[in-house]
Design a protein around this nucleic acid. Structure first.
Length: 761
DNA sequence: CATCACCCTG
DNA sequence: CAGGGTGATG
């Protein structure tokens, strides 16, 4: 295996030049289509896609609107609507009502063999439509019927009928219809509210009207025709009356419910006051516990929190987290207990002084509340203790199956075994406000110190095949031949915890906790059966809320006592660990007693990202070894390495995209000579790039970067001008040029907490 | 086969 | 920015 190192090293060196691989394919797919077209196409490709998707969304919206109408039934409507393609354009802004209108229209249009006009088909099946729409008492039908057009057609229709059928019946029917229309406004109101019937009717109609009539349908049709004259009056009135009845009934029920609830509320209030009285008299202990439990919802979250000013309120506000992990219960309970003790003291004082001052009315309420809270706390405490005891009396579970990131307090850690790293990390948390961390890495000259990773030795020695890689990893650039302890593979196996909360100071730290947590959770939930961790599944479903929960749980950790162990290192930022990218087997091998249940392995933090971006000003194509050197505070594994590489890849992507864009823009703007292209700090290009890589203006962009950018831009420019972009792999040549322009990254970037120092200024 | 640059997509 | 896919490289 000795050769492996050198081989690896060589790999690194050679691979660094591999700027061009993969270019061919890409261009063949995308560029082949775009190269002939103008640059604008390429640039605007995204916009085009966006438009497409937007159009799709329009469709969705439309369909949704249809769905509102009648759930499953709406399919029919939609199909019909789509069939009448000529109306489709008009449908976008439709409410459900207008959809029906259109439906009717389109049906009219579709009916009749060739006839496009609505007049022709109306003669064929005129009354069907009219009758149905009216009897539907839908708004649309109302409009149709009430419109002059509708009335005219109605008259027309009736005169035809009169000749064929019973005159009297017809007359009665017309009268009924008209009468019914007078009722329509009311009917509409009710029928809309009770939608389903309406829809069912409607569906029937659409089926009948849209499809050529099946015998059965026509049967039904005839029936209806016959029935209508006699029944219509009833049906209208019935509908109206039944709807009214329903409404009245509903109202009554609601009233009843309201009254019930009011009664209940009253009862609750009475009981609540009873509690107050009872706490003074200590008379009814039995009732108390019951009530206190019940009032948990009221007081548990909000009420208690108001008293917990000392502990971060924000932390507490998300008490659901406590439901997820017994350890948090314990934590919570302890804090509550402390509060209780404090309260007790305060209350004793207040009682004496306030009572004498005659301020009892106000303060007695407070006192009683406090008493209630105490009761609450006691019961909560006992519950918590029970829960915790239950949990820990069971055989310990593999770390991941518990909520890994919620080390509530030190006791827990002692319980699980001593984790040196936790101490340091935790201690860092405790003292972060006061201590200026001595940073051995600051004076780092090329020999990475084992700091920040002292804990790795304590971790279980899970040897992995990538060991050799890790051992030589830090060699290439520097002279040191000894392995960086932080790169020891064993340290990777303990990455069940993913948060190394060392610098909460930084503004972005917290938001990103959630991010890492999400991914971690996803990984763990896939890798492990979550049978034993009831909360896990639900959690993974609710990653969003998790973020806040995680953030708050982090705060919880901050509240605990300082470990005497001094931090030997300053890890950078909140480390976000992705647990080994699917190498979960190793983690499952970890003994629950090993103490790595929760280990704070180093990972890539937002600060690392920031640092990487700044480094991009110096190097566009950093080698893996370089990355390892400059991110010496990170325990490298395959995933971390890949992620870093990916970052730079993404940086390059953005960089080159901008270059191409601006080059084409320059061409479009009529720039003729390459020499006319100058990238200065006033250039838009510069601003864009600076915004991307140096948003906070953390550093002054090195002059060299401007030069490189200018060269790149010119390369793109001349290539495009020379129509070299016809070649599918035309960028390849540019990449080759640019990759040689990397400059040395200042040593200061090797400092582990370089960014922190920088940002602190 | 592993690694990685690139592209594309979300 | 990350994930997935492809192709080049050793």
């Amino acid at each position: 295996m000795p050769d492996h190192d050198t081989e690896f090293h060589l790999n690194r060196l050679t691979k660094r030049r591999r700027v061009d691989i993969g270019v061919k394919r890409i261009v063949s797919s995308s560029a082949s289509s775009t190269q002939t077209a103008s640059a604008i196409i390429t640039v605007n490709r995204a916009a085009f896609d966006a438009m497409n998707s937007r159009q799709c969304k329009k469709q969705d919206v439309l369909e949704c609107q249809g769905a509102q109408l009648g759930e499953a039934k709406s399919d029919v409507l939609r199909k019909l609507l789509k069939r009448g393609s000529s109306y489709e354009d008009n449908m976008i802004p439709f409410s459900g009502a207008t959809i029906i209108t259109n439906l009717l229209k389109s049906n009219k249009a579709m009916r009749g063999t060739g006839g496009r006009e609505s007049v022709v088909p109306r003669k064929a099946e005129p009354e069907l439509l009219q009758e149905d729409t009216c009897s539907n008492s839908s708004q649309e039908s109302a409009e149709e019927c009430l419109s002059p057009f509708g009335k005219i057609s109605l008259d027309h229709l009736d005169s035809e009928r009169l000749n064929k059928e019973h005159l009297q019946a017809k007359r009665a029917r017309v009268e009924n219809i008209i009468r019914g229309m007078n009722h329509l406004p009311n009917v509409m109101a009710t029928s809309i509210s009770s939608g389903k019937d309406c829809e069912r009717e409607l569906e029937g109609e659409t089926n009948v009207t849209a499809q050529s009539f099946s015998p059965r349908e026509s049967n039904r049709e005839n029936k209806r025709k016959q029935k209508l004259p006699q029944q219509q009056q009833h049906s209208f009135q019935q509908m109206v009356s039944t709807h009214k009845e329903q409404k009245v009934e509903e109202r009554r029920q609601l009233k009843l419910q309201l009254e019930d609830m009011q009664k209940q509320l009253k009862q609750f209030q009475e009981k609540f006051f009873q509690i107050y009285d009872s706490t003074d008299s200590e008379a009814d202990g039995g009732n108390l516990s019951e009530d206190s439990v019940r009032s948990d919802g009221m007081l548990g979250d909000g009420g208690i929190n108001e008293y917990l000013v000392q502990n971060s309120v924000a932390d507490r506000s998300d008490n659901e987290i406590a439901d997820l992990d017994p350890r948090c219960f314990l934590d919570e309970a302890k804090a509550l207990h402390r509060e209780q003790v404090l309260l007790d003291g305060k209350m004793a004082k207040q009682e004496g002084s306030l009572r004498s001052k005659g301020l009892m009315s106000m303060h007695e309420v407070g006192k009683r509340l406090a008493e209630t809270l105490k009761q609450e706390l006691n019961s909560a405490m006992s519950q918590v203790v029970d829960t915790v005891v239950n949990v820990f009396s069971k055989p310990p579970r593999p770390p991941l199956q518990v909520f890994p990131s919620l080390p509530a307090n030190e006791d827990h850690f002692v319980f699980n075994g001593n984790n040196p790293n936790f101490h340091t990390a935790n201690q860092r948390l405790q003292c972060f406000g006061d201590v200026v961390f001595p940073s051995p890495l600051d004076s780092f000259v090329g020999v990475p110190l084992p700091c920040a990773n002292d804990q790795t030795e304590a971790l279980p020695l899970v040897v992995r095949k990538s060991a050799s890689e890790h051992h030589q990893s830090s060699d290439p650039g520097a002279q040191n031949g000894h392995p960086h302890p932080s790169l020891h593979p064993s340290s990777l196996s303990g990455n069940t915890g993913f948060i190394s909360p060392s610098s909460f100071r930084h503004p972005f730290s917290l938001p990103l906790v959630g991010y890492s947590f999400q991914s971690t959770l996803g990984a763990s939930s896939t890798g492990y059966s979550s049978k034993d961790s009831p909360g896990l599944m639900d959690l993974s479903r609710e990653t969003t809320s998790l973020r806040t929960k995680m953030a708050s749980s982090q705060h919880l950790m901050l509240n605990h006592s300082c470990s005497p162990v001094l931090p030997r290192s300053t890890a950078e930022g909140l480390s976000l660990i992705k647990p080994e990218c699917g190498d979960l087997q190793d983690m499952s091998d970890i003994s629950p007693y090993s103490g790595c249940t929760i280990s704070f392995s180093e990972g890539l933090s937002p600060n690392h990202l920031k640092k990487a971006k700044l480094m991009f000003f110096y190097t566009r194509y950093p080698s893996s070894s370089m990355l390892k050197m400059y991110f010496s505070d990170v325990k490298f594994n395959r995933c971390i390495t890949s992620q870093l590489i990916k970052w730079f890849s993404n940086f390059r992507e953005f960089y080159y995209i901008q270059m191409e864009k601006f080059a084409r823009q320059a061409i479009n703007d009529g720039v003729a000579a390459v020499d006319d292209i100058i990238v200065s700090r006033d250039s838009e290009l510069y601003k864009v790039l600076n915004m991307h890589y140096n948003k906070a203006n953390d550093i002054e962009v090195p002059e060299r970067f401007l030069e490189v950018a200018q060269i790149t831009l010119r390369e793109f420019f001349s290539a495009i001008v020379a129509s070299r972009d016809v070649d599918p792999s035309w960028k390849k040549a540019i990449y080759k040029v640019i990759c040689k322009l990397d400059s040395e990254v200042p040593e200061i970037f090797k400092s582990a907490n370089y960014l922190q120092e920088l940002l602190r200024e």
